[in-house]
Amino acid sequence: MAAINLPRIIRVGGGALAELPGAMAQCGVARPFIVTDGFMVSSGMVASLLAVLDDAGIKAVVFAETVPDPTVAVVEAALEALRAADSDCVIGFGGGSPIDTAKAIAALAVEPRPVQAMKAPATTDVPGLPIIAVPTTAGTGSEATRFTIVTDEASSEKMLCAGLAFLPTVAIVDYELTMGKPARLTADTGIDSLTHAIEAYVSKKANAFSDAMAISAMKLIAPNIRTACTEPGNRAAREAMMVGAHHAGIAFSNASVALVHGMSRPVGAFFHVPHGLSNAMLLPAVTAFSAPAALSRYADCARAMGVAGAEEGDQSAVARLLEELAALNADLSVPTPRSHGISEARWFEVVPEMARQALASGSPGNNPRVPEAAEIERLYAEVFG
Rank of each mutant, 00 (worst) to 15 (best):
L49R: 02
L359P: 02
M24D: 00
L277A: 02
T169S: 14
L185K: 02
E111M: 12
N224A: 15
A212G: 15
F63G: 02
R8L: 09
T230D: 04
G38N: 11
G385T: 06
G44K: 10
D188E: 15
T195G: 08
L108D: 01
P32G: 02
A304V: 03
V62I: 13
A73S: 14
E239W: 05
F209D: 09
L325I: 06
V75H: 02
I250T: 13
L167F: 11
I10Y: 05
R297E: 02
S142Y: 09
P232Q: 07
D86Y: 04
L295V: 06
V74K: 13
T66M: 08
A222D: 07
D331P: 09
N279F: 07
A381C: 10
F252E: 01
A56T: 14
R369K: 09
G57E: 13
V307M: 10
A327S: 13
W347P: 06
L259T: 00
A64D: 15
N224G: 03
L53T: 05
V257G: 00
H340Q: 09
L282V: 08
I215N: 08
K119Y: 08
F271A: 10
M213G: 05
V260W: 00
S216I: 01
S193N: 12
I250W: 12
M241T: 05
D211N: 14
A171G: 01
A285G: 04
T336F: 11
M24E: 08
G14C: 07
G268A: 08
A183S: 13
A47Y: 01
E382Q: 14
V52L: 05
S339H: 10
I99W: 07
G190L: 12
V243H: 13
C301A: 15
G262P: 02
E353R: 15
Y298D: 10
A217R: 09
E65K: 14
L325V: 07
P274Y: 03
A308Q: 07
S42H: 12
A285T: 13
A2S: 12
D69I: 10
L164G: 14
A355D: 05
I9Q: 09
A245K: 10
A81V: 09
V243C: 06
A200D: 01
V273H: 08
L20M: 11
D211H: 12
D314E: 14
Q357P: 00
I99H: 00
G96P: 07
L79I: 04
A206Q: 02
A255P: 09
P68V: 12
R378Q: 09
V41D: 08
L79S: 08
A104T: 02
G341R: 12
E353T: 11
V29L: 00
F348R: 15
E344F: 11
S142K: 06
A104E: 01
C27M: 14
V150D: 00
V173H: 00
E239R: 10
I9D: 06
